[in-house]
Computed example of a mutant assay.
Amino acid sequence: MSNSFESVIKPTFNLIPLKNQSPAWKLVALIFGNLFLTLSSYIEVPMIPVPMTMQTFAVTLLGALYGWRLGGMTIIAWLIEGVLGLPVLAGGASGLHYFVGPTAGYLFAFPIAGILMGWLSERGWNGSRVLLAFNGMLICNAFCLLFGAVWLTSIIGYKQAVVLGVIPFLVGGIVKSALGAITLKLLTRTEKK
């Protein structure tokens, strides 16, 4: 196996060294991540049947920065806050009904996308390799759209789910993936060997 291939599949990136941090530090990171996700939810472009927000930007960036474990836990904690009535979802929304209505598929896709991006980042799809980071974030955005569309299909049918729940968000997904990869690159510290 070549060295370049090994570097893509082996963990090579640790922007935020979580393994050596105390539980209190991890809790602070989780709270900060929740605030970041909530703020990203308030940046909203009205669309039907679901608004386009910066949530997938935040989800993929948190996964890349925090790694798959803490990134996934942060996103799940944020979703639980939404279920419990805290105004953390798109536009300050909250409540259980968002997890059974048209937005449910997208919401349930978020932790999976964050975990996937964290896993990819830990294996070299990160700010050190901005094109791989972009591709990873694009894959995660596409997964959210696909999962959301599958859920929407059960509510409004396949054609409407694609027309209303995927197509309007394709350009936004590409833009948010590029922005996420650039942000990750800017946050990446170059280590001198």
Rank of each mutant, 00 (worst) to 15 (best):
Ala77His: 05
Gln21Pro: 00
Leu132Met: 12
Trp151Asn: 10
Asn34Lys: 01
Val171Ala: 14
Asn14Thr: 09
Ile75Lys: 05
Phe134Cys: 10
Ala58Gln: 04
Phe110Thr: 01
Gly101Ala: 15
Met52Ile: 15
Ala24Thr: 14
Leu164Asp: 13
Ala58Ser: 13
Tyr66Met: 11
Ala64Asp: 02
Val150Leu: 15
Asn20Val: 03
Leu186Met: 06
Pro87Cys: 06
Asn34Ala: 13
Ile48Lys: 09
Gly124Thr: 05
Ile156Trp: 05
Ile182His: 01
Gly91Glu: 11
Lys159Asp: 15
Gly82Glu: 06
Pro46Ile: 07
Ala77Asn: 11
Gln160Trp: 04
Pro87Lys: 06
Gln55Arg: 11
Leu39Asn: 01
Ile115Lys: 06
Phe143Gly: 02
Ala93Leu: 06
Gly72Tyr: 04
Gly82Ile: 05
Lys185Leu: 09
Ala109Ile: 04
Val45Glu: 00
Gly165Pro: 08
Phe108Trp: 13
Pro17Cys: 01
Leu138Thr: 05
Phe57Trp: 09
Leu145Pro: 05
Ser2Lys: 12
Ile48Tyr: 14
Val166Arg: 10
Gly124Lys: 01
Pro23Asp: 03
Leu70Cys: 07
Gly91Arg: 11
Gly82Pro: 04
Leu27Trp: 12
Thr103Pro: 13
Glu44Trp: 01
Trp119Arg: 01
Ile112Tyr: 06
His97Asn: 14
Leu132Asn: 12
Leu65Ile: 14
Ile155Pro: 07
Val100Lys: 00
Gly82Leu: 03
Leu61Phe: 09
Ala113Trp: 00
Gly124His: 02
Val8Asp: 08
Lys176Glu: 11
Leu39Asp: 00
Gly124Ser: 04
Ser2Asn: 15
Phe99Ala: 10
Ile48Met: 09
Glu191His: 12
Ser2Ile: 03
Val130Pro: 13
